[in-house]
Amino acid sequence: MSKDNIYDTPQLSIAGFRFDRAVASVFPDMIKRSVPGYETIIAMTGTLAERYVQSGSRCYDLGCSLGASTIAMRHHIPHDNCQIIAVDNSEAMLAQCREVLAQDDGRVPVELLFDDVQNVEVTNASMAVLNFTLQFIPVAQRSELLQHIADGLRPGGVLVLSEKVAFEDPQHQQLMIELHHNFKRANGYSDLEISQKRSALEDVLVPETLAVHRQRLRDAGFSSVDVWFQCFNFASLIAIK
Rank of each mutant, 00 (worst) to 15 (best):
T70D: 10
V120N: 09
L94V: 04
F132Y: 15
I238F: 05
R154D: 09
H213P: 00
P28Q: 07
I14G: 00
Q215L: 11
S69L: 08
L134R: 06
H181G: 04
L205G: 00
T70P: 10
P138N: 05
Q230D: 01
C97V: 07
I31N: 10
G188E: 07
A140N: 12
M93G: 07
S55W: 02
N89L: 10
L205M: 15
I240W: 01
F234I: 01
I240Y: 01
D115I: 07
A22M: 04
F114H: 15
K3S: 11
D88N: 11
Q196Y: 00
Q147F: 06
A102T: 07
S236E: 05
A220Y: 02
C97L: 06
E99S: 13
D115S: 15
D61E: 08
V160T: 12
V100N: 14
M176W: 05
A24W: 02
L146W: 00
E168G: 15
G46I: 09
G156A: 02
A166E: 10
S195H: 13
M30E: 06
S199I: 14
G156V: 04
L130E: 06
L66W: 07
Q147G: 15
H76I: 02
T9E: 14
Q230M: 08
Q215C: 01
A15R: 13
D115Q: 14
A186D: 12
A125V: 07
L112H: 09
I41Q: 05
G56C: 08
L217K: 06
I238P: 01
V53W: 09
Q54G: 05
P109I: 05
G156K: 02
S126L: 07
T47I: 13
L175N: 09
I14W: 04
S55E: 14
R74T: 11
H75S: 12
A128H: 06
C64F: 09
A68C: 09
I71C: 11
E121S: 14
R214E: 15
Q118A: 12
K164F: 02
D203K: 13
I137D: 09
V206E: 01
Q215N: 11
L130W: 07
L134H: 02
G156I: 06
M93W: 10
V227C: 14
L205R: 00
I41H: 01
I85G: 01
H148T: 14
Q141Y: 08
G106D: 10
I137R: 10
D104Q: 09
K241E: 01
C97Q: 07
G16L: 02
P28T: 04
Q171E: 14
H172R: 14
C231S: 13
A49P: 10
M1S: 13
S90N: 05
D191I: 04
N182Q: 15
R51W: 08
R218T: 11
G46S: 03
S25F: 03
V117N: 09
D191W: 03
V35A: 03
P109N: 08
F183C: 04
N119A: 13
L237M: 15
A220P: 06
I77E: 11
T133C: 14
N124G: 07
V122R: 05
D169A: 05
G152P: 12
R21H: 13
Q171Y: 10
A186S: 13
E91A: 15
L113Q: 14
N131T: 11
A235L: 02
Q230P: 02
F232E: 05
